[in-house]
Simulated assay, not measured.
Amino acid sequence: MDLVTLLLFVPACFALNLAPGPNNLLSINNAAHHGFLVSCCAGIGRLIAFATMISLASAGLAAVIIASETMFIIIKTTGAAYLMYLAYKFWTSNGPTIAHTEKEAKVRITTLMRREFMVAIGNPKAIFIFTAFLPQFIVPNHQVSPQFLTLGAMFLLLEWIAIAIYAYLGLHLRRWLAKTRAKKIFNRICGSLLGGAGLALLVARNAKG
C-alpha cells in the first residue's frame, strides 16, 4: 500500500469509526457504569464481530449476503430485535453498581463483550462498510487479499481507538451518575437511542431496493 492511499484511508476510516452509533453508545454506557478499562475490554466483542465481517468480505461472502434479500432481512431483523431488547433492559434498569469481587468483574466483562458482539454482528450497515468502503482503497494491480486484510487490521486498530475515546467520554459521566435518579435518566436516554436505532434498522432497505 502506497503512502498516498494510506493518507487518504486513515482519516476517512477514522471518521467512520467515530460516527455515533449503537456500539459507541454502549462504550459510553459501559464506561459510565463500570469504568474506562472495562469499557475498552468490552469493545473486544465488537472487534471480533468486525474481524468476522472483514474475513467474510475478503472471501467475497459478504457480497453474497447483501445480494440475498432473505439473508439481509434475517440479519436486519435479528439486529433490530436485539437493539430493542437492550433498549428495554436499559429503560427498566436503575444502573448497576460497581463490582466488588474479581469474579463479578469477570462475569460483567464477559456479558458486556457479548453485548457489544451481538450489536455489531447484527448490524448489516457494518457489512456495507467492508464491501463498499474498504475496496475503494484497494490497488487493482496488486494482490487483493493481503491489501484487504491490511486495511481491515487498520480499521480494527482505529475502531479500538474510537472505543477508548467514547469510553473516556463516558468516564466523565460517573460523578453525575452517582445518584440513582441520574442513573435511571441516563439509562432511559441510552435505551431510547438504542430503541430508535433498532427501529431505523428494522425499516432499512436492501441495497437492491
Rank of each mutant, 00 (worst) to 15 (best):
N17E: 13
N17R: 00
L18G: 03
A19Q: 14
G21F: 12
N23T: 12
L25W: 13
L25T: 14
L25N: 06
L25Q: 08
I28S: 04
N29P: 01
A31H: 01
H33E: 02
C40A: 15
G45R: 02
G45E: 01
R46M: 06
I48W: 07
I48A: 11
F50L: 05
A51M: 10
A51N: 07
M53W: 08
A57P: 01
A57F: 00
A57N: 02
A59T: 07
A63C: 03
V64A: 15
I66A: 05
E69Y: 15
E69M: 13
M71H: 07
F72D: 00
F72L: 08
I74K: 07
I75H: 02
K76M: 07
T77I: 05
A80L: 05
Y82W: 10
Y82E: 09
Y82P: 03
A87G: 14
A87L: 13
A87Q: 14
K89G: 08
T92L: 07
T92R: 09
T92D: 13
S93Q: 02
N94S: 12
G95M: 01
P96H: 02
P96C: 06
T97S: 09
I98A: 08
A99W: 04
T101R: 13
T101F: 03
K103P: 07
K106M: 12
K106Q: 13
V107N: 11
R108N: 09
R108M: 07
R108Y: 00
I109T: 08
T111D: 09
L112K: 04
M113K: 04
R114T: 13
R114P: 07
R115K: 07
